[in-house]
Design a protein around this nucleic acid. Structure first.
Lengths: 360, 360
DNA sequence: CTGAAAGCGCTTACAG
DNA sequence: CTGAAAGCGCTTACAG
């Protein structure tokens, strides 16, 4: 009683060996370019393998080898539509060039982070026994998830983390977010703004190791340097929209409802900044005359979109290169020392969404 | 001579069994909730496993089971910053809710597709023996890659493809792109435009099964219905920028250099449409008075950005739901018949980037 | 250069 | 309810 799809038996290395008239051992060596043997034999085995359509079972190989040799797990709680994904693209690509397969274990914004069991997912990934791990830990919220990562490292697993400082004994590339928002805010202050608002979307709102959200910290530091007291009602509430653009829409309505408004807005994320500009513009306000806006990340849309947006850069490619270089040096044994940490910073890009305030 | 990191031997199910004082077989059953046994025993085994930090080796399980039970491979030649990724988010999420782990094998835009060996990557994925495969085949260009997919299906592998019609015997959800661009173009025609331009970025330019690119085909069909001859110089050359926004910038400079310009532009991709609007706006043209613009996908930025953009929707969630439903019904044996095919369509969303042409 | 054998870590009939 | 044994498909010392 066969099922409609006759699941033909998979061809194994044993089949290849039999047809080629040699042993499994030799077949394996021929296929993996190991040991020495007659070029003759090697060629025959390969030909037979091709003809039979042999494909080594990756699981059996991993089991025999102890560790999968060329797959690197990529873990990221984020799969955004912006710089986060761009970094993943770059890292995956650079690693791909070096011969690695890098499946991405990421999670989009369909639901609040709280509902995703990050620890479980990391554990699942670890059970795959990848050769190494690349981990974007910027939204690795649960302590349990961090514990999983720590455990992976303690077990001798090779990992490189990026984007966020974390107390894990592995190489790390961090982007100085505090500094980024500080730079953005300072730009507004230097233009003469004294009434400043701040907004961040929840998807960017992970907390730093010291318990404070770094973007907010950078904003407050700049204000402190200028001896300005932050105004409660201008520290706009973090929204939990999974689509950051919606955050900008909500922000605009709060802003417009205000009796007394800031003259400058520091918004952590270009997309949110652009939708904010769109909404207040349609409400009759003029940017930058009525309100200056500075975003974060310096995306393509900030540069070339319908309205240009001042922003601070997010060093996507440098971060990716550093991650890959660190990983590669470990994989090749070029480096075998203490965990390294590299910090990368933003640059300010001024465009016409920021100008001195009207009253100045 | 031990290496600095003493790679402690991994704890196996054998260790668990030994400590718990029972056999491997029983330990396995206890951990996997199979067979029947004293609640006592089961509890003991689980406790021991937890205490020892046992984690089943996924490869060994797959090998023993014949097929990995809960990982579904997700293959996509794209990892964009728009609807493509949004669909992946949704599919991954919906599948995750059903208990599956869905690592994404995708490839970003760092380089032209030509340089990526899709066939090799698909073969690698297949060697992982996933429970099933979800495949976004919209940029599955190489015949070799298609052959790999076909082979996977022929070998009895379970797959669901989406986004693009392909001659593969598996369930399929396709978005009618020809129709989408037809609708967008018709909107311009109905407004009275007769001089129409068309632009598509290479990343969207895969060809349909009949050898024509469907968006272009939809554009031409609309023109034909209105008895309008397409003008060579207004069929703007497809650019190969990996970042679609740049496509809009290049398009703008070509457009501005034209002696005689179209009054309406049909642009396949909102991001490109928005950067186009930005660039021509800064060159002194007014949208929609000097030129009407309609995009594709109806993204958040089209709705809430600095300039609102008419667009046609891309049914992200419906596509994702259909894909998951089809897959789920097969996995659960609720359906076991012939390959199914579902076609989804766009809706037109009119905003203020389109208006009747000046001369009308 | 090549082959027989052991082993990777699990699961699952098959006996008891 | 539980255990001994076979087997999943490969690789790699170890002999020859």
């Amino acid at each position: 009683m066969q099922k409609p799809e006759v699941k033909t038996k998979r061809v194994t290395i044993e089949d290849v060996a039999r047809v080629a008239g040699i042993s499994k051992s030799t077949a394996s060596r021929a296929l993996n370019s190991k040991g020495s043997m007659t070029p003759q034999t090697r060629a025959t085995v390969r030909r037979v393998a091709r003809r039979l359509g042999f494909e080594a079972n990756a699981h059996a190989q991993c089991l025999a080898n102890g560790r999968s040799n060329n797959t690197i797990g990529f873990f990221s709680p984020d799969l955004d539509l912006s710089v986060g994904t761009r970094k993943m693209q770059d890292i995956q690509h650079l690693l791909g060039e070096r011969g690695y397969v890098v499946p991405i274990h990421a999670f989009g914004y369909r639901q609040p982070y709280a509902l995703i069991n990050q620890a479980q997912l990391l554990a699942d990934l670890r059970r795959q026994r990848p050769r190494a791990l690349v981990c974007n830990n910027s939204n690795l919220r649960e302590a349990a998830a961090r514990a999983e990562l720590l455990r992976y490292c303690d077990d001798g697993g090779l990992a490189v983390c990026y984007d966020w400082p974390l107390e894990v004994p592995c190489d790390m590339v961090v982007f100085d977010r505090e500094d980024a928002t500080y730079c953005a805010t300072r730009h507004l202050l230097e233009l003469g703004h004294r009434r400043l608002g701040f907004f961040i979307n929840a998807t960017y709102g992970a907390e730093g190791p010291d318990g404070t959200e770094p973007h907010r910290a950078g904003f407050l530091r700049a204000l402190r340097e200028w001896n300005i007291e932050p105004r409660e009602e201008w520290m706009f509430p973090t929204t939990t929209f999974m689509q950051v653009e919606k955050g900008g829409v909500g922000l605009a309505s709060l802003f417009l409802a205000l009796r007394e408004r800031p003259t400058g807005m520091c918004i952590v994320n270009d997309a949110a900044a652009l939708t904010f500009m769109g909404e207040v513009g349609r409400a009759g306000l003029h940017v930058p005359h009525d309100v200056s806006v500075i975003g974060h990340d310096n995306t393509m849309m900030a540069r070339h979109g319908p309205r240009q947006l001042s922003s601070v850069t997010h060093p996507v490619l440098p971060i990716a290169c550093s991650v890959v270089e660190m990983l590669d040096s470990r994989l090749n044994g070029r480096y075998d020392g203490e965990p390294r940490k590299e910090v990368l910073r933003c640059e300010l890009v001024v465009r016409d969404s920021t100008a001195p305030p009207r009253e100045a």
